[in-house]
Write a protein that binds this DNA or RNA. Structure first.
Lengths: 121, 121
DNA sequence: TCTATTAGTTCCGAAGTTCCGAACTATGGG
DNA sequence: CCCATAGTTCGGAACTTCGGAACTAATAGA
């Protein structure tokens, strides 16, 4: 298993963030990671809405979020803990994440009841 | 030639907007349409940066932007004029477009020197 | 009306991406 | 060592995107 790659804050690209969050499953996963105190094992997100997501797809979704710079993943024993990189992204692109999360929330969609203020992350 | 489809303002989806703008060529095209007084013939965007975009790809990029609700395209004789739907998108998802355009601009990228305030259109 | 030109769309094959089950790797407990 | 749990990688099917060639639509000129 190769080590998990994370971009430096200054290497985070807007296109990668938009691509990562343009998938509503991934947007929901990201919203959930923020709500859950910014720490979440992959297995805690085995479903989005009514839809069960297979492990391999989930692993790929986490990879896309990680390589976009949206989350930081750390192995802790047998599991991986995922932290939101909200502060990093906010520092680099102020207002981008709140706007995206709000848009999903106001669409009544997948990422509803998401905090409008920066969570501790 | 079938008529050009445009979603109603209330049918605009965040995921579609993010997907449309997660491609840097499309983000550049959209930025250019706004800068150019919100009207632009497709042929005026035959290149993005140093890269020449073939007509068929360009046609598809405009279609993606149109179907995401970001632009309105009207046939005027032999050409198509594209208007930004900034006001519609801003009404539905306040702050989303400025945040995205700013993110690209502050990345020093493709959509630099883009207005930070809502343009006429 | 016929032809040419310009602007854009559609078609379709090649190339690339995503999805997901199966096989695999890594860690921890007994 | 064996088993269970958590996640990754592999690989094929399904889907998307790219771009050249052929097409449609409007317009101008003979």
């Amino acid at each position: 298993m190769r080590p998990l790659f994370h971009p430096a804050t200054e290497d985070i690209q807007p296109a990668a963030i938009l691509h990562a969050l343009s998938d509503s499953s991934r947007a929901a996963i990201f919203a959930k990671i923020m709500q859950a105190g910014c720490v979440e094992a992959c297995s805690a997100v085995s479903a989005v809405g009514d839809r069960v997501i297979p492990k391999s797809s989930l692993s790929n979704h986490f990879k896309v979020l990680r390589e976009a710079g949206l989350i930081r993943s750390e192995r802790h024993g047998v599991e991986v803990r995922n932290h939101s990189r909200w502060a990093d992204v906010e520092a680099r692109f102020p207002g981008l994440l709140p706007a995206i999360i709000n848009a999903y929330a106001s669409d009544g969609g997948v990422a509803s009841h998401v905090p409008r203020t920066s969570p501790a992350g």
